[in-house]
Amino acid sequence: MNKPARICSTCHLTSITSNAFCPRCRQKLYVRKPDSLKRTLALLLSATLLYIPANVLPIMIIEKMGQGKSDTIMTGVIALAGSGMVPIAIVVFVASIVVPLFKIIGITLLLLHASGLWHGNTLRLQKLYRFIDWVGRWSMLDIFMISVLISLVQFRILSIYAGQGATAFAAVVVLTMLASHTFDSRLLWDRWQAHE
């Protein structure tokens, strides 16, 4: 019987050994990421709870001549589209509303399959996992745009501030990125092998 490969979580050395510690950096070796499903579920639930205030609370506050106007993500998308900037409105809508929701639903499906509560196509779920992991780095586009606006437009007449929704949105992005990182995709194949 083949020994399972163990991957060091620190230096990423793959070892086929019965030793409990990495021969390179002396960290403990695991066959699978410890408590992967529990950690991923905790991060996913936190991201799901914060997704609501991220879309309801103002993400940006603009003060002009003492008058304040706040925008949520959706009102910002509508304002951009109304100003004739439809391509930018589409990018903001996809990056800020569609992608985080897609990641939350996708990670939920991965967790359901890996825990045995739902059976899907393992190969497609593996591709879904890779896509979620890849798209995660593009999710901070809105926060980047707000920070650029804040740094560019700090005049006496016009001031732009990040609202509470921006904090919640950044937390959703970080939590979903961490959830995809803590999920051990090899659990999908373990479940597939158990059904063979």
Rank of each mutant, 00 (worst) to 15 (best):
R26S: 13
Y30A: 00
G68F: 15
D35A: 05
R124P: 04
S147W: 15
A95E: 11
L111N: 06
G84W: 03
A47G: 07
P100V: 03
T17H: 04
I132P: 10
S115D: 04
I107G: 08
P87H: 10
D133M: 05
L109N: 13
S139L: 10
V94H: 00
A47R: 01
V92M: 05
I105S: 05
P23R: 12
L80N: 04
L80T: 09
H119I: 12
L43Q: 07
K103W: 02
P58N: 08
I143Y: 11
I52N: 09
L110H: 13
I73E: 04
S70L: 06
I146N: 10
S18W: 14
T108N: 07
P23V: 14
I104M: 06
K38D: 00
P53I: 06
I104W: 01
L117A: 15
A54F: 10
V99Q: 01
I104D: 03
L123K: 12
L37I: 00
T48H: 02
I61N: 15
I146T: 15
S139P: 11
E63V: 06
A20E: 00
T14V: 09
L80A: 02
S9N: 12
V77R: 01
V98R: 00
M60K: 06
R32N: 04
K127D: 15
N19L: 14
L111I: 06
I52V: 15
Y51N: 10
A54P: 01
A20M: 07
I105T: 08
I97F: 10
K28D: 00
P87I: 07
T72A: 10
A81R: 12
D35Q: 03
L43W: 04
S139T: 13
L123V: 14
A95I: 09
V92W: 01
S83F: 02
D133C: 03
F21G: 09
L57P: 08
T108Y: 14
K33N: 00
V91S: 05
W118Q: 10
N121Q: 08
L50D: 09
P100K: 02
L43M: 13
Q67T: 10
K103V: 12
C22A: 03
V92I: 03
W138H: 10
K127S: 08
G68D: 07
T75P: 04
M60D: 04
R26K: 12
L111R: 06
V31S: 03
T108V: 10
S18C: 11
I78M: 15
V77A: 03
F102Y: 11
G116A: 08
A54L: 06
V77S: 05
H119S: 13
V56T: 11
T14F: 07
K103M: 05
K38Q: 07
C25S: 12
K38T: 09
Q126P: 01
E63T: 12
F144I: 11
A20H: 02
I97L: 11
S70D: 07
F102T: 07
A114I: 01
A47Y: 02
F144N: 14
I62P: 11
N55W: 14
R137A: 07
